[in-house]
């Protein structure tokens, strides 16, 4: 019952966000300076008035904006994303062809980032001895460097070293699993840096909580304290970052695909933006909004799974809410928002 209600509300909020995203992108892109016909045909050709009229007819540019919006929204609801100006093909096809390479890259990068971050954090959290301190210093320096280095620079350097000089991995443009390694690592590094920092901070602060003293006083070993107790607490801020991670992957692919000359959504987006291909840009915006809605619903669900305090409507009256937990309102949707803005 509670779950059904939760999902229903999520769906409503998600649809509202999608509608808002669609409307804002329509409004922005259709109030662009310049005649859309010029954009459509390109600046090089002289256009006869007849052709101009015909194009206006086909695309409905001469109608009032509100009518265009209504028609567009109507088509959108029935699943029609329109036709690409540039490629003269249905937008769904243009994007559909490029979807898998990007998803593949994003999944591989997520796996690399998760592996690096969890490894680095578990190896260094809660270690305050002299050796541990040195290790922590090294790890956080590397993380800072990973977060601060521009993706395109790292990509070029990795490609030069591992493909051109050492010849271990295929050069840019290759397909297949070997061709995925360098782009995935490039995309993963800044994300891994942020995740490792957040996870370590989470583990450290969990280990400093009073209950850890109680647990240790029961004769529980350090490994159990770390894995059974602290890791679950540290996962909460990490889950909050999930939305940010997906966003970084999306924007990261734009750059990574350009550096490694890979096909994918990022390249299509870049080309569409350079060519002002409005239907494609709009579709990318909508796609990104769908991903956002889905990811944030997952984030909220993960919170409910991880933290029993959020599951309960009825709590003892003197109990404060869990520290750092999102407010229980429709706004928790953007719980990842404040952590945003760490790398591009």
């Amino acid at each position: 019952m509670r779950v059904a209600w939760f999902l229903l509300r999520r769906l409503a909020v998600g649809l509202a966000v999608l509608w808002g995203a669609a409307t804002i992108s329509f409004a922005t892109l259709h109030t662009m300076p310049g005649d859309p016909v010029d954009t459509l045909i390109g600046p090089t050709f002289g256009v006869t008035p007849q052709l101009r009229a015909q194009i206006n007819e086909t695309y409905g540019f001469s109608e009032p904006l509100v009518a265009q919006y209504g028609r567009w929204l109507g088509r959108l609801v029935t699943g029609h994303l329109g036709t690409s100006y540039q490629q003269q093909a249905p937008v769904a096809d243009v994007l559909g062809d490029q979807l898998w390479p990007t998803v593949e890259l994003a999944l591989a990068a997520s796996a690399v980032a998760a592996l690096l971050a969890v490894g680095a954090a578990l190896a260094t959290a809660g270690r305050h001895g002299p050796g541990g301190r040195a290790l922590r210093g090294l790890a956080s320096s590397l993380e800072l460097l990973a977060v601060s280095s521009p993706t395109f620079w790292v990509g070029i350097l990795l490609a030069t070293v591992f493909s051109t000089w050492l010849g271990w991995l295929p050069v840019a443009g290759a397909t297949g699993p070997e061709g995925l390694v360098l782009p995935a690592v490039t995309l993963a590094l800044p994300i891994a840096g942020v995740l490792a920092q957040v996870l370590r901070e989470g583990l450290d602060s969990a280990l400093e909580q009073p209950f850890v003293v109680s647990v240790r006083a029961r004769g529980v070993g350090a490994a159990t304290v770390l894995f059974v107790h602290a890791l679950r607490h540290a996962a909460l801020p990490l889950v909050t970052l999930l939305g940010w991670v997906v966003g970084s992957l999306l924007s990261g692919t734009v750059i990574t695909e350009a550096v490694f000359a890979r096909p994918g959504l990022g390249r299509v987006t870049l080309e569409a933006i350079t060519a002002r291909d409005v239907p494609v840009v709009t579709a990318v915006v909508l796609l990104s909004a769908v991903v956002f809605v889905v990811v944030n619903s997952l984030v909220d669900l993960a919170y409910l799974v991880l933290d029993p305090r959020l599951r309960d409507d009825r709590r003892a009256p003197d109990t404060p809410g869990p520290p750092g937990a999102p407010a229980r309102s429709g706004r928790s949707m953007v719980s990842g928002a404040t952590q945003k803005g760490s790398s591009a």
Binding site: A21, T269, S288, V334
Partner: peptide
Amino acid sequence: ADILLAFPELLLALV
């Protein structure tokens, strides 16, 4: 703001 936050900043900048 919620709606705008739905997009990665780089994508927003590109638009």
